[in-house]
Nucleic acid binder design. Structure first.
Lengths: 148, 148
DNA sequence: TGCCTGGGGTTGTATGTACAACTATCCCCC
DNA sequence: GGGGGATAGTTGTACATACAACCCCAGGCA
């Protein structure tokens, strides 16, 4: 028999831990967007990245890591995949081997094509969460664009 | 030049998309908990799972997939790893090849040992987010225990 | 001049995650 | 008593993610 202590700690964490809730939400939300976007052959993560690149019509990888709070090694591989898919292009341009990433025409087309599916996912997420939690969440989480 | 359209859609998604915000938050939060828990050799995801198992002092995998909203194949592999680490045990017990997963003494000890580090992470997350967003988030997201 | 430092990027390795396909069981019902 | 369907789990494959360890190059500085 385990010490009853472990059960208490387990209950505490299961009910109070922020990472439990946030990670669970992430799985649910990601599934919704992935399902809606699947017909276009793009994932939620990839669409996030495409959008971030489109905003400035070209971005430096360092900006993207800060904007999306993603590790540089992760970004490196994600960009490589998207480059192989023909959605983006990366041009060596700056001093220290720095680069600039831009959308290809195919990437730009994908982004506009996908918009209805994205709106469907957004609506679906709102419905699943409920109107009120959706709004609370919106209020609690800063838009990455505002964030810096 | 891309059509300006793509830039508009990109900006719309970057600023309005729920998955962008939630996934970004997930990365930030996961990093905080992982860092705090690292000295104990346990990840945020593993602690979440350990806690869920501890709550009922034993659970069926099917319950865990619903509680954590995780795919059964994901759960299968995560449990396998934790079993190899000696934290849990899984006993064949029920009808349709069903099993019951319980903490080992080592798993129970880990859970209690890790509590201070978890509290540190929780405090750190609150500080990073700010008092108000933290509370809003708490209110918007149901505790998985309540959820069903 | 030659070294150190720091920014920018990739690669090795491991985990977390999902979907699809497959296997194994049990249970109901004709 | 033999399907058929529902339930439970594993395995193949691919992507998202992170940390650590590297490599490259530009500038400062002794």
């Amino acid at each position: 028999m385990k010490k009853p202590d472990a059960q208490e700690v387990g209950t505490l964490i299961a009910s109070e831990c922020l990472s439990v809730r946030v990670r669970r939400l992430g799985r649910v939300i990601t599934r919704i967007y992935d399902a809606a976007l699947a017909p276009h052959g793009v994932s939620a993560a990839q669409l996030n990245l495409l959008a971030a690149i489109a905003v400035g019509d070209g971005a430096r990888p360092g900006d993207l890591t800060r904007l999306l709070e993603v590790e540089k090694s992760t970004l490196s591989r994600d960009l490589k995949r998207m480059e192989q898919l023909g959605w983006i292009r990366s041009e060596a341009a700056l001093p220290r081997g720095g680069r600039i990433v831009t959308l290809t025409p195919a990437g730009a087309r994908l982004l506009t094509d996908v918009r209805p599916a994205w709106e469907k996912a957004q609506a679906r997420a709102r419905a699943e969460l409920g109107e009120k939690p959706f709004a609370q969440l919106r209020a609690a989480l800063p838009s990455p664009l505002k964030a810096r």
